[in-house]
């Protein structure tokens, strides 16, 4: 580090005359800039490597670019909120059907305080999560079996192909007939819709494992079971997770539909009921809630995904 400090004034890249720079600011220069190793000789492979890691770790970051990024990212949202607020007030759109955002937020707050929002939210969340969890628990093993064992794939593929092209929505009446109007039919419905992205990604995850890795593991005399456990499964995890994330989004989207068709609680019911009884701000409050729920759910899954695949090249 001492070499680094000494090297700074010699390079007047900052525009300030050399020498006037106080020692304190020199410490603030981003690490990893000088190409000279601490010993002052030609960088060795190891020096180069550590330097590379330091830069790759993203040490160089300043507050100003971050702020501008934040502005760029939120500008469109702010614009949307602004339009939603002003257009109804100016009479450009009918404020009966599209009340200003502030009125919707007030309605949302009233629903929250009144306890209805929590009740509907909870009902929806339980259904979504149950279907989603069921899909993960049953479909990943099935996908692994199909991806790994050719006979299983040959046996199940035609049936799966048929069902894959049958919309969940088309099957909802069937689910209701079989499981009644209560919770089971909705959970099964969500489960069905969530299964496909998980299943297809699991199969492709298993099938697209780098053949060289399999060869390398086989050369070390691994049994088929160990090969599956130690190579195929970890290699397939990122692809499987892509499917899980898609399924997370589906679980909320499809549930909403089920709740609109027949339910006495849930955010889908809230939205539908509010529209029927002409409580328009309530309807929008429900819609906003569901959007935010979807957003948070995806964020959660992305975080979990990151934890599971730290080894992936992130560039």
């Amino acid at each position: 580090m001492a070499d680094t400090l000494a090297a700074v004034p010699a390079v007047p890249a900052t525009g300030t005359p050399a020498g006037t720079v106080p020692a304190g600011t020199a410490t603030g220069t981003p690490a990893g800039t000088p190409a000279v190793s601490p010993r002052g000789d030609v960088p060795t492979a190891d020096d180069r490597a550590t330097n590379f890691f330091r830069v790759a770790a993203g040490v160089r970051s300043s507050a100003l670019p971050r702020l501008s990024l934040l502005l760029r990212r939120t500008a469109a949202l702010a614009l949307l909120a602004g339009l939603w607020e002003t257009l109804p007030r100016l009479g450009v759109v009918d404020r009966v059907f599209a009340p200003p955002l502030s009125e919707v937020l007030v309605a949302w707050y009233d629903l929250l305080v009144g306890g209805q929002l929590v009740e509907h939210f909870q009902a929806s969340l339980i259904r979504s999560l149950s279907g989603f969890a069921l899909a993960i628990a049953l479909t990943i093993p099935l996908g692994l079996a199909i991806g790994w064992y050719r006979p299983v794939a040959d046996f199940l593929s035609p049936v799966l192909e048929l069902f894959r092209n049958t919309s969940a929505v088309a099957l909802l009446p069937v689910f209701i007939l079989i499981f009644g109007l209560g919770e089971p039919s909705k959970i099964i419905f969500v489960f069905y819709a969530c299964s496909w992205p998980i299943l297809l990604n699991t199969i492709s995850g298993v099938r697209t494992v780098e053949p060289l890795l399999v060869k390398s593991a086989r050369s070390m005399g691994l049994s088929p079971f160990r090969l599956f456990q130690k190579v195929i499964l970890p290699a397939a995890v990122p692809t499987i997770f892509t499917g899980v994330r898609l399924a997370g989004a589906y679980s909320i989207l499809t549930l909403l539909f089920a709740e609109m068709v027949g339910a006495k609680a849930g955010l889908g019911y809230l939205i539908q009921d509010a529209q029927f009884s002409f409580r328009i701000p309530d309807m929008y409050a429900g819609i906003i809630t569901i959007s935010v729920l979807g957003l948070l759910f995806n964020l959660l899954l992305v975080t979990v995904e990151r934890r599971f695949s730290t080894w992936r090249t992130t560039s």
Binding site: K215, S216, G221, V237
Partner: peptide, 20 residues
């Protein structure tokens, strides 16, 4: 008769397990 740990292979493309 088959692969075994009495022989080790080194491949051109390293074949390291990226998650390890």
């Amino acid at each position: 008769t088959g692969p075994g740990l009495d022989r080790g292979i080194v491949f051109q493309q390293y074949a390291l397990f990226p998650w390890r």
